[in-house]
Amino acid sequence: MELVVAGNSVRALRTGRGLSQAQLAGAMGVSRQTINSIEVGRYTPSLALAVALARYFESTVEEVFDVKEP
């Protein structure tokens, strides 16, 4: 079964907590550019990073990332 990430709520979750991209990047151990690329949908993170983001926001991967069948 093929799945694609149609969107995500990383930006909304981040701004909702008053965090900058750099602060979230620091917490995740990635660059600010990577957080920006994820937010605008240019980069789909690995499973490990997706889970780390979901845990950081005390959420689930499915809630953070809109995963659909194409």
């Binding site: 151990g29 990635v30 660059s31 550019q33 990577t34 980069y43 993170p45 690995s46 490990a48 990073l49």
Partner: peptide
């Protein structure tokens, strides 16, 4: 440069 640092320390999965 974040890109250069990422290329060097290999921490950032996207880079």
């Amino acid at each position: 440069s974040e890109t250069m640092r990422g290329l060097m320390d290999r921490r950032d999965e996207r880079i």
